[in-house]
Amino acid sequence: MTLIINGEEQDVAATTLAALLDVLEYEGEWLATAVNGELVHREDRAAFTLGERDRIEILSPMQGG
């Protein structure tokens, strides 16, 4: 399935958001995720089914002013 992950097109074999994070080796409790402009809570990732060309944002904490 083709997905747009953090602005870049990628072909990934994962059907849920949780599976996608696993496949791409994202780990840690500090990630925030959104699909097509909507927040997906961490506890909802396993049940969240991805569709072709979904836009996924994966963010983590960083320094800020």
């Binding site: 791409l24 500090w30 994966i58 983590s60 960083m62 800020g64």
Partner: peptide
Amino acid sequence: VTVSLRRETAGGKAGGAFFEMI
């Protein structure tokens, strides 16, 4: 302290390290 969020690269640990430090 103020903090922010940015795109994390696949397998990246930068956000986690910063989070733990704070």
